[in-house]
Protein backbone atom coordinates (compact mmCIF):
# COMPACT_ATOMS: atom_id res chain seq x y z
CA UNK A 1 0.00 0.00 0.00
CA UNK A 2 0.97 3.60 -0.62
CA UNK A 3 0.52 4.44 3.07
CA UNK A 4 3.02 1.72 4.05
CA UNK A 5 5.59 3.11 1.62
CA UNK A 6 5.10 6.63 3.00
CA UNK A 7 5.36 5.53 6.65
CA UNK A 8 8.50 3.49 6.02
CA UNK A 9 10.19 6.19 3.97
CA UNK A 10 9.29 8.90 6.48
CA UNK A 11 10.62 6.77 9.35
CA UNK A 12 13.89 6.15 7.56
CA UNK A 13 14.30 9.82 6.66
CA UNK A 14 13.56 10.83 10.26
CA UNK A 15 16.66 8.90 11.36
CA UNK A 16 19.04 10.62 8.94
CA UNK A 17 20.21 13.67 10.87
CA UNK A 18 22.73 14.61 8.17
CA UNK A 19 19.99 14.81 5.55
CA UNK A 20 17.82 16.94 7.83
CA UNK A 21 20.63 19.35 8.58
CA UNK A 22 21.69 19.91 4.99
CA UNK A 23 18.33 19.87 3.27
CA UNK A 24 16.19 21.67 5.86
CA UNK A 25 18.28 23.71 8.27
CA UNK A 26 21.51 24.72 6.55
CA UNK A 27 20.14 27.21 3.98
CA UNK A 28 17.80 29.05 6.45
CA UNK A 29 20.56 29.29 9.07
CA UNK A 30 23.02 30.57 6.46
CA UNK A 31 20.55 33.15 5.16
CA UNK A 32 19.71 34.24 8.70
CA UNK A 33 23.38 34.79 9.53
CA UNK A 34 24.11 36.54 6.22
CA UNK A 35 20.98 38.72 6.69
CA UNK A 36 22.00 39.72 10.21
CA UNK A 37 25.58 40.52 9.15
CA UNK A 38 24.29 42.51 6.15
CA UNK A 39 21.99 44.55 8.40
CA UNK A 40 24.86 45.32 10.78
CA UNK A 41 27.20 46.29 7.92
CA UNK A 42 24.56 48.51 6.31
CA UNK A 43 23.79 50.09 9.68
CA UNK A 44 27.47 50.85 10.22
CA UNK A 45 27.57 52.63 6.84
CA UNK A 46 24.06 54.10 7.04
CA UNK A 47 25.05 57.78 6.64
CA UNK A 48 27.15 57.11 3.57
CA UNK A 49 24.57 54.80 1.95
CA UNK A 50 21.64 57.19 2.65
CA UNK A 51 23.47 59.94 0.75
CA UNK A 52 24.08 57.70 -2.26
CA UNK A 53 21.66 58.73 -5.06
CA UNK A 54 22.14 55.34 -6.79
CA UNK A 55 21.11 53.27 -3.73
CA UNK A 56 18.46 50.62 -4.58
CA UNK A 57 14.89 51.29 -3.34
CA UNK A 58 15.01 48.29 -0.94
CA UNK A 59 17.99 49.87 0.79
CA UNK A 60 16.40 53.29 0.93
CA UNK A 61 13.27 51.74 2.48
CA UNK A 62 15.41 49.83 5.00
CA UNK A 63 17.09 53.04 6.13
CA UNK A 64 13.86 55.08 6.16
CA UNK A 65 12.97 53.97 9.70
CA UNK A 66 9.39 53.46 8.53
CA UNK A 67 7.54 50.65 10.34
CA UNK A 68 8.10 47.19 8.87
CA UNK A 69 4.86 45.44 7.86
CA UNK A 70 5.46 41.83 8.90
CA UNK A 71 2.34 40.59 7.09
CA UNK A 72 3.56 41.92 3.75
CA UNK A 73 7.08 40.73 4.52
CA UNK A 74 5.74 37.20 5.05
CA UNK A 75 3.93 37.34 1.70
CA UNK A 76 7.18 38.43 0.03
CA UNK A 77 9.02 35.60 1.77
CA UNK A 78 6.38 33.06 0.63
CA UNK A 79 7.10 33.99 -2.95
CA UNK A 80 10.81 33.47 -2.37
CA UNK A 81 10.67 30.08 -0.67
CA UNK A 82 11.98 28.30 -3.75
CA UNK A 83 15.07 30.43 -4.16
CA UNK A 84 18.24 28.93 -5.61
CA UNK A 85 19.78 28.20 -2.21
CA UNK A 86 16.68 26.33 -0.99
CA UNK A 87 16.52 24.36 -4.24
CA UNK A 88 20.17 23.43 -4.00
CA UNK A 89 19.97 22.08 -0.47
CA UNK A 90 16.53 20.49 -0.62
CA UNK A 91 17.92 18.49 -3.53
CA UNK A 92 20.34 16.80 -1.12
CA UNK A 93 17.40 15.41 0.83
CA UNK A 94 15.45 14.52 -2.30
CA UNK A 95 18.41 12.71 -3.87
CA UNK A 96 18.98 10.78 -0.64
CA UNK A 97 15.35 9.66 -0.60
CA UNK A 98 15.20 8.85 -4.31
CA UNK A 99 18.58 7.16 -4.71
CA UNK A 100 19.13 5.83 -1.17
CA UNK A 101 17.75 2.37 -1.96
CA UNK A 102 20.16 2.01 -4.88
CA UNK A 103 23.07 3.28 -2.81
CA UNK A 104 22.42 0.97 0.14
CA UNK A 105 21.08 -1.91 -1.99
CA UNK A 106 17.85 -1.98 -0.05
CA UNK A 107 15.30 -2.15 -2.85
CA UNK A 108 15.28 -5.92 -2.60
CA UNK A 109 14.22 -5.65 1.04
CA UNK A 110 11.16 -3.55 0.44
CA UNK A 111 10.10 -4.18 -3.13
CA UNK A 112 8.72 -7.70 -2.70
CA UNK A 113 5.73 -6.68 -0.63
CA UNK A 114 4.53 -3.53 -2.33
CA UNK A 115 3.87 -2.41 -5.85
CA UNK A 116 6.62 -0.43 -7.50
CA UNK A 117 4.47 2.63 -8.31
CA UNK A 118 3.48 2.74 -4.62
CA UNK A 119 7.12 2.69 -3.58
CA UNK A 120 8.05 5.61 -5.82
CA UNK A 121 4.89 7.55 -4.97
CA UNK A 122 5.74 7.00 -1.31
CA UNK A 123 9.11 8.64 -1.91
CA UNK A 124 7.43 11.53 -3.75
CA UNK A 125 5.06 12.07 -0.82
CA UNK A 126 7.95 12.09 1.66
CA UNK A 127 9.97 14.54 -0.46
CA UNK A 128 6.85 16.74 -0.62
CA UNK A 129 6.66 16.62 3.18
CA UNK A 130 10.37 17.36 3.50
CA UNK A 131 9.97 20.31 1.11
CA UNK A 132 7.07 21.70 3.17
CA UNK A 133 9.15 21.48 6.36
CA UNK A 134 12.11 23.13 4.59
CA UNK A 135 9.80 25.92 3.39
CA UNK A 136 8.39 26.40 6.88
CA UNK A 137 11.87 26.65 8.39
CA UNK A 138 12.88 29.07 5.63
CA UNK A 139 9.78 31.17 6.34
CA UNK A 140 10.66 31.28 10.04
CA UNK A 141 14.23 32.19 9.15
CA UNK A 142 13.01 34.97 6.83
CA UNK A 143 10.71 36.33 9.53
CA UNK A 144 13.53 36.27 12.08
CA UNK A 145 15.78 38.03 9.58
CA UNK A 146 13.13 40.74 9.11
CA UNK A 147 12.81 41.14 12.90
CA UNK A 148 16.60 41.48 13.25
CA UNK A 149 16.61 44.05 10.47
CA UNK A 150 13.80 46.01 12.18
CA UNK A 151 15.72 45.94 15.46
CA UNK A 152 19.01 47.04 13.86
CA UNK A 153 17.40 49.96 11.99
CA UNK A 154 15.04 50.93 14.84
CA UNK A 155 12.01 50.29 12.69
CA UNK A 156 8.65 49.75 14.32
CA UNK A 157 6.53 46.70 13.48
CA UNK A 158 3.04 46.49 12.03
CA UNK A 159 1.05 43.52 10.75
CA UNK A 160 -1.53 43.85 7.99
CA UNK A 161 -2.95 40.88 6.17
CA UNK A 162 -6.50 40.84 4.85
CA UNK A 163 -8.31 37.86 3.32
CA UNK A 164 -6.87 38.63 -0.10
CA UNK A 165 -3.37 38.73 1.36
CA UNK A 166 -3.89 35.36 3.04
CA UNK A 167 -4.93 33.88 -0.32
CA UNK A 168 -1.90 35.45 -1.99
CA UNK A 169 0.38 34.08 0.74
CA UNK A 170 -0.83 30.52 0.26
CA UNK A 171 -0.84 30.79 -3.53
CA UNK A 172 2.76 31.99 -3.56
CA UNK A 173 3.79 29.33 -1.04
CA UNK A 174 2.02 26.68 -3.15
CA UNK A 175 3.80 27.86 -6.30
CA UNK A 176 7.12 27.76 -4.44
CA UNK A 177 6.37 24.18 -3.40
CA UNK A 178 5.51 23.33 -7.00
CA UNK A 179 8.86 24.75 -8.15
CA UNK A 180 10.72 22.64 -5.59
CA UNK A 181 8.83 19.49 -6.57
CA UNK A 182 9.29 20.15 -10.28
CA UNK A 183 13.01 20.53 -9.67
CA UNK A 184 13.26 17.35 -7.61
CA UNK A 185 11.26 15.32 -10.18
CA UNK A 186 14.23 15.59 -12.51
CA UNK A 187 16.30 14.20 -9.64
CA UNK A 188 13.85 11.31 -9.30
CA UNK A 189 14.11 10.42 -12.98
CA UNK A 190 17.90 10.72 -12.88
CA UNK A 191 18.09 8.55 -9.75
CA UNK A 192 15.96 5.78 -11.24
CA UNK A 193 17.70 5.80 -14.62
CA UNK A 194 21.26 5.91 -13.33
CA UNK A 195 20.84 4.41 -9.81
CA UNK A 196 23.24 7.11 -8.64
CA UNK A 197 22.82 9.60 -5.82
CA UNK A 198 25.39 11.97 -7.29
CA UNK A 199 23.71 12.01 -10.69
CA UNK A 200 20.35 12.62 -8.98
CA UNK A 201 21.99 15.61 -7.31
CA UNK A 202 23.78 17.15 -10.25
CA UNK A 203 21.48 16.58 -13.23
CA UNK A 204 18.73 18.89 -11.91
CA UNK A 205 21.34 21.55 -11.11
CA UNK A 206 22.92 21.45 -14.55
CA UNK A 207 19.50 21.36 -16.19
CA UNK A 208 18.27 24.32 -14.12
CA UNK A 209 21.30 26.38 -15.15
CA UNK A 210 20.75 25.44 -18.79
CA UNK A 211 17.03 26.23 -18.52
CA UNK A 212 17.89 29.64 -17.05
CA UNK A 213 20.31 30.61 -19.79
CA UNK A 214 18.58 29.12 -22.85
CA UNK A 215 15.66 31.61 -23.10
CA UNK A 216 17.92 34.54 -22.21
CA UNK A 217 21.10 33.87 -24.18
CA UNK A 218 20.57 31.18 -26.79
CA UNK A 219 17.00 31.38 -28.05
CA UNK A 220 16.59 35.17 -28.70
CA UNK A 221 19.32 35.27 -31.37
CA UNK A 222 17.48 32.35 -33.01
CA UNK A 223 14.30 34.41 -33.17
CA UNK A 224 12.53 32.99 -30.11
CA UNK A 225 11.44 35.79 -27.79
CA UNK A 226 11.07 35.19 -24.02
CA UNK A 227 7.28 34.87 -24.35
CA UNK A 228 7.46 32.38 -27.24
CA UNK A 229 6.20 28.83 -26.73
CA UNK A 230 9.67 27.35 -26.96
CA UNK A 231 11.21 29.80 -24.51
CA UNK A 232 8.48 29.21 -21.94
CA UNK A 233 8.49 25.45 -22.43
CA UNK A 234 12.23 25.04 -21.89
CA UNK A 235 12.25 27.17 -18.72
CA UNK A 236 9.70 25.89 -16.20
CA UNK A 237 11.37 27.92 -13.44
CA UNK A 238 10.88 31.11 -15.42
CA UNK A 239 7.32 30.02 -16.21
CA UNK A 240 6.57 29.66 -12.50
CA UNK A 241 8.14 33.05 -11.81
CA UNK A 242 5.75 34.56 -14.37
CA UNK A 243 2.80 32.90 -12.62
CA UNK A 244 4.05 34.20 -9.25
CA UNK A 245 4.33 37.73 -10.68
CA UNK A 246 0.74 37.51 -11.90
CA UNK A 247 -0.33 36.41 -8.39
CA UNK A 248 1.62 39.29 -6.81
CA UNK A 249 -0.16 41.76 -9.11
CA UNK A 250 0.81 45.42 -9.45
CA UNK A 251 4.12 46.25 -11.09
CA UNK A 252 5.24 42.62 -10.99
CA UNK A 253 2.22 41.47 -13.00
CA UNK A 254 2.59 44.34 -15.44
CA UNK A 255 5.98 43.00 -16.46
CA UNK A 256 4.57 39.64 -17.58
CA UNK A 257 3.86 39.49 -21.32
CA UNK A 258 0.24 38.88 -22.36
CA UNK A 259 -0.75 35.30 -23.10
CA UNK A 260 2.11 33.73 -21.16
CA UNK A 261 -0.07 32.22 -18.42
CA UNK A 262 -1.42 29.14 -20.33
CA UNK A 263 2.03 28.45 -21.79
CA UNK A 264 3.54 28.75 -18.33
CA UNK A 265 1.09 26.26 -16.80
CA UNK A 266 1.69 23.79 -19.62
CA UNK A 267 5.45 24.14 -19.15
CA UNK A 268 5.14 23.58 -15.39
CA UNK A 269 2.79 20.60 -15.85
CA UNK A 270 5.04 18.96 -18.44
CA UNK A 271 8.22 19.38 -16.39
CA UNK A 272 6.48 18.09 -13.26
CA UNK A 273 4.47 15.18 -14.59
CA UNK A 274 6.65 13.81 -17.38
CA UNK A 275 9.74 13.12 -15.24
CA UNK A 276 7.56 11.50 -12.57
CA UNK A 277 5.71 9.35 -15.11
CA UNK A 278 8.99 8.46 -16.82
CA UNK A 279 10.57 7.46 -13.53
CA UNK A 280 7.63 5.23 -12.59
CA UNK A 281 7.56 3.59 -16.04
CA UNK A 282 11.34 2.97 -15.96
CA UNK A 283 11.28 1.72 -12.38
CA UNK A 284 8.44 -0.69 -13.14
CA UNK A 285 10.64 -2.56 -15.61
CA UNK A 286 13.90 -2.20 -13.77
CA UNK A 287 16.02 -5.16 -12.68
CA UNK A 288 16.28 -4.50 -8.96
CA UNK A 289 18.67 -7.35 -8.31
CA UNK A 290 21.46 -5.15 -9.66
CA UNK A 291 21.89 -2.27 -7.29
Amino acid sequence: MWADAIRAEAFRLSKSRTTWFWSVFFAPILLLIVGAISSLVIDANATKLAADPDAPPELTQMLSMQPLDMGQAMIANAGNLSNALVLLFILIGAATVYAGDYRWETWRLISARNTRPNLLLGKLAVVTGLSLVAMLVMLISGTLSDLIQAAVFDRGLTFTMDAGDVGQFFLLAGLSLLRILQFTMIGLLAAVMTRSLLVALFVPLVLAIAQFFLPMQVLPPMGFMPDSWLSVLVDPGGALDSIKDLVRGGDAAAGVPDGVLPKAWISVALWTLLPAAGAIAWFNRQDLSKE
Partner: peptide
Protein backbone atom coordinates in the same frame (compact mmCIF):
# COMPACT_ATOMS: atom_id res chain seq x y z
CA UNK B 1 13.97 -13.32 2.11
CA UNK B 2 17.62 -12.50 2.43
CA UNK B 3 19.61 -12.27 -0.79
CA UNK B 4 23.38 -12.34 -0.28
CA UNK B 5 24.86 -10.18 2.47
CA UNK B 6 22.25 -7.50 3.05
CA UNK B 7 23.11 -3.84 3.42
CA UNK B 8 21.17 -1.17 5.24
CA UNK B 9 21.23 2.61 5.60
CA UNK B 10 24.39 2.96 7.72
CA UNK B 11 22.97 5.61 10.03
CA UNK B 12 20.24 3.30 11.36
CA UNK B 13 20.50 0.98 14.33
CA UNK B 14 19.54 -2.70 14.09
CA UNK B 15 16.29 -1.99 15.92
CA UNK B 16 15.51 0.94 13.62
CA UNK B 17 16.17 -1.23 10.56
CA UNK B 18 13.61 -3.76 11.74
CA UNK B 19 11.11 -1.02 12.58
CA UNK B 20 11.62 0.53 9.16
CA UNK B 21 11.06 -2.81 7.42
CA UNK B 22 8.02 -3.53 9.60
CA UNK B 23 6.47 -0.26 8.46
CA UNK B 24 7.41 -0.97 4.84
CA UNK B 25 5.60 -4.29 5.12
CA UNK B 26 2.43 -2.79 6.52
Amino acid sequence: SMIETPRYPPYMSARQVLTWLSLAHG
